[in-house]
């Protein structure tokens, strides 16, 4: 049985009519030791079947080590939404529940290689010249969360220095306790900065710019 209900499939198909460029969904998975690995893989394949503009590639996290390293994937299930180029847009854990919105939005933006961020925001982001790693913690029952995830991914698309992850809290309890997540959305920037709650565009961009400036050293994400 399909994961996506007919009405959701239809709405997604409708949205995908506006895709312009090819999009590739790169999924890292394995059979065991992962709550929603199986469902995430099925979701990726179902989505790819809804539009000729979307293709999927499934890698085994343990066997395809090189690929995992190339994409810097350190946990699964993981999905990278990319085009000819990897923009640094990642989903860790299944993009289900409300997060399905941010997943479709990432596909749309990557396909069009453009975001609807304001000119002022784009200008500020273009001045970032050090690596920034944004992690947005979510739960699948959080109606406020997709806005934060979408914002983080738009920033990643606009800047080659930014990598943005959605992190589904239930799938990664060790990260929840590492970062002390007790409410979502929670945004962690370069390990040491962050904020709670969904911020409007201007404030979100400001936080990221601030963090990129105060990060002591350009560090690899990991």
């Amino acid at each position: 049985m399909a994961l996506l209900k007919d009405e959701v499939q239809n709405e997604a198909r409708e949205r995908f009519k506006k895709l312009t460029g090819q999009v590739r969904l790169v999924n890292f998975t394995q059979k065991i030791e992962c709550h929603y690995c199986e469902e995430t893989r099925r979701l990726i394949e179902e989505i790819a079947s809804l539009s000729p503009k979307i293709s999927s590639k499934i890698y085994n996290f343990t066997l395809d080590k090189e690929k995992a390293q190339q994409y810097k994937i350190d946990k699964i299930p993981a999905v990278v939404v990319e085009a000819e180029k990897d923009y640094g847009i990642r989903f860790f854990g299944i993009p289900g529940g409300y997060e399905f919105n941010s997943f479709i939005s990432a596909i749309y933006d990557v396909s069009r290689k453009a975001t609807d961020l304001s000119v002022e925001s784009k200008d500020k982001i273009s001045k970032i010249d050090k690596p920034v790693h944004i992690q947005v913690f979510v739960t699948l029952t959080c109606p406020y969360c997709p806005a934060a995830v979408e914002m983080a991914h738009k920033l990643a698309l606009e800047s080659e220095y930014i990598i943005s992850d959605m992190v589904e809290s239930a799938e990664f309890p060790h990260l929840v306790s590492k970062y002390g997540v007790m409410g979502v959305p929670k945004v962690v920037i370069n390990e040491e900065f962050g904020f709670e709650g969904a911020l409007p565009e201007t404030s979100f961009v400001e936080e990221v710019v601030k963090a990129s400036k105060s990060t002591t050293e350009a560090k690899d994400e990991g």
Partner: peptide
């Protein structure tokens, strides 16, 4: 303490407790 135990959205945050 918002996001550090204080929550206004129980459907969002209950799983952390």
């Amino acid at each position: 303490l918002i996001g550090r135990g204080v929550s206004y959205c129980s459907i969002c945050d209950a799983p952390f407790f």
